[in-house]
Write a protein that binds this DNA or RNA. Structure first.
Lengths: 96, 96
DNA sequence: TCCTTTATTAGGCAACAACCGAATAATAGC
DNA sequence: GCTATTATTCGGTTGTTGCCTAATAAAGGA
């Protein structure tokens, strides 16, 4: 859970998520849309991958990234739990 | 918005939020519930304050902290927007 | 006023995160 | 096998975060 919060803490990574919502994209194409070096973006993608928020599948020489929607829903549920706007959850919440 | 995501990125700060959901608490009492030095906790409270997630009101020598529920709801809405689970929002989302 | 209590700020340090250019890996096509 | 393309990993720099102890501030009561 902590990995998800950390992944969301950087604006660029949230923008990548917003981008991928519209459809899958290869890493290079994502890179062209940001004003940062490719290795830097590759690092951001790794953080998102390790948090489980995206997956990358190789197609030929390119690696196409797509959202992992189930994880996004899980993180939503966690945040709902943290704020307790929704209810019917564990009585002793552990936010980690 | 970015401040909120950054504030939520640390486990201790999320635990503070979970704690305050049950009721307001003075800083010192929060500190006793964590195994960290008081100045460290004071720093976490500052981060939460600057993100607008909590407010601190002085009562005598102590400062009582409470959740800023409106901001919590706003951040929920932002996350819903980021993931687009809910709809009927801005057509060109900016996740910053 | 002085002392106690409660919290914060200041200063310093180690660990981490973000960034870049250069080098390396993986695949496809000739 | 060689070359081109696409991405990642490596190595290093810079700035930030998290933590601590010591010092300071703010309020209340003797």
């Amino acid at each position: 859970m902590n990995l998800i919060y950390e992944a969301l803490a950087h604006p660029t990574r949230r923008q990548i998520i917003a981008l991928l919502r519209r459809g899958d994209l290869p890493a290079g194409e994502i890179a062209t849309l940001f004003d940062i070096a490719k290795p830097t973006l590759s690092g951001h993608l790794r953080v998102l991958r390790e948090a489980g928020l995206v997956i990358g599948e190789r197609h030929g020489t390119s690696i196409v990234y797509s959202l992992q929607l189930s994880l996004l829903e899980e993180s939503m549920a966690a945040l709902l739990d943290l704020f307790k706007i929704d209810s019917a959850r564990s009585p002793e919440p552990d936010p980690n």
